[in-house]
């Protein structure tokens, strides 16, 4: 995909600086610091409840952090709504449960935000949406409703929908966890293609094959903190901590 990242090359795309978050008295993010460079692909893994989804959801403020700084594409996330609008326009997100809009057709799902947020003329938005639907290989489903599609197809539509906003950064929150095994591959293939086009990506996933193939860096989280951060090769061949070793043995046994 020719999604040329238009992030300035020297400034990092995402900076998390000692981010803390609590749910009531539960400390879910502990001093999380992470820098993602432009065009970098970062895979975040960790056991369930490790805070990896919470962290990625803080990046476009679906969750608010309570301490520390988050800077996305040079804009700091604060209570300022205008800054938030700017960031959400530049950051696409794909969810575990797809979250397509069931009352709109596939095409309308893809054109809604460009038309209303980016003020793209309708015809242009539709052309562009068809372009992205072709790239995720389901242009023939454009007139259907999400409920008529398989899980894998829905998730590919969700990726196309996010791409239609021409984001600089893409966030993936366990995009294959809700899929039947035979559909995981079609979604991963789409993500690999996207990664190879140079998109800046942060993916929460347990697909270690995907991590090995496209990630520049793998981040391992446990109990709300980043425990290890390394290249995929180092990460899998040479884990430093017992927690990572335990985690790897558990997910490898599962595969």
């Amino acid at each position: 995909m020719s999604q040329a990242a238009t992030l300035s090359q020297d400034a990092p795309a995402i900076v998390l600086d000692r981010v803390n978050k609590w749910y009531g008295s539960m400390h879910v993010l502990r001093d999380v610091s992470l820098t993602v460079e432009a065009r970098e692909r970062v895979v975040v893994c960790g056991p369930s409840g490790s805070g990896k989804s919470t962290m990625i959801r803080c990046i476009n403020r679906l969750e608010t952090h309570q301490e520390g700084r988050i800077v996305v594409d040079g804009t700091e996330l604060t209570d300022d709504l205008r800054a938030l609008d700017t960031i959400r326009r530049e950051v696409g997100m794909v969810f575990q449960s797809f979250n397509l809009f069931p009352h709109l057709t596939v095409l309308e799902n893809c054109t809604l935000a460009p038309i209303w947020v980016r003020k793209t003329p309708k015809a242009e938005a539709e052309d562009q949406a068809m372009d992205y639907l072709r790239r995720v290989k389901i242009p023939e489903q454009a007139k259907k409703y999400p409920g008529q599609l398989s899980g894998g197809q829905q998730q590919r539509v969700a990726i196309a929908r996010a791409l239609c906003m021409k984001p600089k950064i893409m966030l993936f929150d366990e995009p294959t966890s809700a899929l039947d095994p035979e559909m995981i591959k079609e979604v991963l293939d789409t993500m690999i293609e996207l990664a190879e086009s140079g998109m800046t990506m942060v993916c929460v996933t347990h697909e270690m094959g995907f991590a090995r193939r496209v990630a520049d860096r793998v981040v391992f989280m446990d109990r709300g903190e980043i425990v290890e951060s390394n290249s995929p090769h180092e990460m899998f061949e040479n884990p430093q901590t017992d927690r990572l070793k335990l985690f790897l043995s558990q997910i490898l046994r599962g595969h």
Partner: peptide, 24 residues
């Protein structure tokens, strides 16, 4: 998830309400 997807796409409160939430 419907609210979150609309938020993540950058829709404003009234766009989200009028286009996604109320119709459903």
């Amino acid at each position: 998830g419907q609210y979150e997807a609309a938020d993540a796409l950058g829709l404003s409160y009234w766009q989200k309400t009028g286009l996604i939430i109320l119709p459903q």
